[in-house]
Simulated scan of single mutants.
Amino acid sequence: MEWFDNFWSVYSNLVLTLGTNALLALSIYLTLSCGMLAIANAAFMGIGAYTSALLTMNYGLPFPLVLLAGMAAPAFMAFVIGKPTLRLSGVYLAMATLAFGEVVRIALLNTESLTGGALGLNGIPQSTQWWHVALALALTLALLWRLNRSKVGRAFESIKEDETAAGLMGIDVAAHKMLAFVLGAAIAGLAGTLNAHLTFFIGPSEYGFDRAVDILTMAILGGIGNLTGPVIGAVILTLLPELLRSFKDFRLVVNGFILVLIVLFLPKGIWDPARFTQWFGRKGSRA
Rank of each mutant, 00 (worst) to 15 (best):
F181S: 07
V182G: 00
V182H: 02
A186C: 04
I187P: 07
I187M: 04
I187Y: 08
A188N: 10
G189E: 11
L190W: 12
A191Q: 15
T193F: 10
T193P: 12
L194H: 05
L194E: 03
N195T: 15
N195E: 10
H197I: 00
F200R: 11
I202S: 00
I202N: 00
G203R: 03
P204N: 01
S205A: 10
E206T: 12
E206F: 10
Y207N: 01
Y207I: 06
G208M: 10
F209R: 09
R211V: 04
R211K: 14
A212M: 04
A212F: 03
V213F: 13
D214I: 08
D214F: 12
L216Y: 04
T217P: 05
L221Q: 05
L221V: 02
L221S: 02
G222C: 00
G222I: 01
I224V: 14
G225D: 00
G225Q: 09
N226V: 03
T228E: 14
G229L: 03
I232G: 02
G233M: 02
G233E: 00
A234F: 07
L239F: 09
L239E: 08
L240A: 11
R245T: 10
S246Q: 13
S246T: 15
K248E: 15
D249Y: 10
D249S: 13
L252Y: 10
V253A: 12
